[in-house]
Design a protein around this nucleic acid. Structure first.
Lengths: 79, 79
DNA sequence: CCGCATTTACCGCTTTAGCAGTAATAACTT
DNA sequence: AAGTTATTACTGCTAAAGCGGTAAATGCGG
């Protein structure tokens, strides 16, 4: 349950900690500037790959948690 | 770095574990059936809120991880 | 207080996400 | 092997995501 409020706060905090403006972050992530504006305002209809680019630049990891995730990750490692 | 391959595997595994068809999952989540089809195939441009609905039904949590997340979560709790 | 940087909003455009109906294909059960 | 269920693909439609230019509003530093 990706909380949009937490997400927008996290992105803003990490961006400022990295000393970047919204425009700089957008350029580094290779997305349009309106994406960063929208994300930090809590917009919930951003596309996954667009968000992913932002999180990569800010070095934020996303982890899925459930009772089955161990099976999935182990299976992947065995590949 | 939300890995789309992990995500699609996780959704498929959880859906099957819950004994649901793709159509049933889509109905429970309140989204169109093509969303579940696309997600399980690894489509990366699904919208965040659409994905969120799926993850809620499957009881999969999403956690952000970075060196600053503690500050953000603690601040939120203090609100 | 002023100047500059940043953020927010508007614009017009292209592409497509999501929707549900329908059909074809694949998988499963009997 | 046949029937049923599930998955995949196609269709046409609407609304909007994302893009970058531009302008207005806000915030910050000197």
């Amino acid at each position: 349950m990706l909380n949009p409020d937490i997400l927008s706060k996290a992105i803003k905090k990490h961006r400022k900690a990295a000393g970047l403006s919204q425009l700089q972050l957008a350029e580094m992530a290779g997305v349009g500037k309106t994406v960063v504006f929208d994300l930090e305002k809590g917009k919930e209809t951003i596309q996954l790959d667009t968000l992913r680019k932002i999180l990569i630049v800010l070095n934020i990891k996303v982890v899925l948690q459930s009772h089955l995730m161990n099976q999935i990750l182990n299976t992947d490692e065995n590949s």
